[in-house]
Amino acid sequence: MSKDMKELPGTPVSGKELKSDKIITFEWRPNAKYAWSAGIAYGRYLDELKEGRIIGRRCSRCKRIIVPPRMFCEQCFVATDEWVYCKDTGTVNTFSLSYLDADANRIKEPILVAVIDIDGASPGVGILHLLGNVDPKKIDVGMKVKAVWKPPEEREGAVTDILYWEPMED
């Protein structure tokens, strides 16, 4: 069958045509709004971020300290049972330089993105966040970094209460 295929069904159109009067189209913008509850674990996590602290949860079964915290350990499938403060320092696990914004528009100055393994959490336990105050060429996996917090009066209990993570001085 495939080897005999010559013309397949489908009528290509360009983006320009799609926005022109040449073909019949219908436009729509959904306008539902949402309020997502942080829940118990993330709620406390955000409360602590507002205070300039990073908190995790400990699972007494596998002994992992996990960040972001959750009320149950997804591996042991038991309730976690202890809040544990972690440090606001960590290690770059992997990083990237984004020349795209969230709508895939090109941007000139890259957003510095990283997974940061948090000191005081179990090895390999990290969070997605941003790097800053660093020459992109000097970023490397394994680099030690420290959180740069918003001034306390500007914090709102969100992951953006940490502005970014910057290299630690040796």
Binding site: Y34, W36, A38, G39, D47
Partner: peptide, 8 residues
């Protein structure tokens, strides 16, 4: 209870 407001 903390909320995040947004849309889709």
């Amino acid at each position: 209870i903390r909320h995040q407001i947004g849309d889709m």
